[in-house]
């Protein structure tokens, strides 16, 4: 009985925030003491279909930024993590990868802002892209660290011994073996970039209006319906990714 109650309560708790935000994203006119907005309309959502709306622009910027960051980091960290894994100081180097997270991205942003201003990268898309690379690259290394096991290195050596060249070894052995972890890295880095607010705001000086910045802007303008709509847009892509990625999510990133 208690277990059943707990299951129901827990399930409702999981879905309630999503339901709640969706109701507000289609809502208008929430006067006190009405429990939900009096009017429901899809007009708010239709602005996404309009080409030049600010929300549309933010959605495009966020998708472009997160995809670019995720692709770059997946490739870069896959190649470089192999040599980190072969290092004598592997554990220490992996520990260093936690630096940006332990320091907090926004604090790192404070420490680095001068250099971005000095190089004219502050307030630009390239600047935010570079800042996000700095915080996500170590995460990529952490994810791939678990992939480079002695078994993988032995398999690589074996293919070389059997006469395969570097390209063949990558195509026929390493890539098929690493497909899942490559996808995991892409998804996780995409999520970090997609969710990022503090660093993007600090380095972008508010000029690079990602979706998270737009949510904050709408909240400050007390436009709760557009804020809810932008929130729903923020939730949908990671929702799709996590659903695809569900099977191997969390396994590589959690150190126990």
């Amino acid at each position: 009985m208690i277990k059943k109650g707990l299951t129901y309560l827990f399930t409702i708790g999981l879905f309630f925030p999503l339901f709640f935000l969706f109701i507000f994203s289609i809502g208008r006119n929430w006067q006190f003491p009405a429990i939900f907005p009096k009017k429901n309309t899809l007009d708010n959502w239709s602005i996404i279909l309009k080409g030049n709306s600010e929300l549309n622009t933010s959605l495009t910027i966020s998708l472009l930024l997160s995809s670019l960051v995720a692709i770059t980091i997946t490739l870069l960290s896959f190649i470089t993590s192999k040599y980190i894994a072969q290092s004598k100081h592997r554990s220490f180097l992996i520990l260093l990868c936690y630096l940006p997270y332990v320091l907090a991205p926004v604090i790192l942003g404070v420490l680095l802002q001068f250099y971005f201003i000095y190089t004219d990268l502050a307030g630009t898309f390239a600047g935010v892209f570079l800042a996000q690379l700095i915080i996500t690259y170590p995460f990529g290394i952490i994810i791939f660290n678990n992939f480079w096991t002695p078994l993988v290195f032995e398999l690589e050596k074996l293919t070389f011994t059997l006469g395969a060249n570097t390209n063949q070894t990558f195509k026929e052995v390493l890539f098929p073996l690493s497909r899942k972890v490559l996808a995991l890295c892409f998804f996780q880095v995409f999520l970090i970039s997609w969710f990022e607010y503090g660093l993007s705001n600090l380095i972008g000086i508010g000029n690079v209006k990602t979706l998270t910045l737009r949510v904050f802007q709408y909240i400050n303008e007390a436009n709760i319906f557009y804020a809810a709509l932008a929130s729903c847009l923020l939730i949908i892509p990671p929702g799709i990714l996590i659903w695809i990625n569900k099977r191997f999510l969390f396994k590589a990133e959690t150190i126990v």
Binding site: T11, F32, Y197, S231, P238
Partner: peptide, 28 residues
Amino acid sequence: FLSIAIYLPLVFPALVMAFFSFLLLSKS
């Protein structure tokens, strides 16, 4: 079902969850 549904809260950025709390808990 729950083994998939448990991943749902992970799609919420901190900012969105804060906004949800704001709508839920504020005076009005």
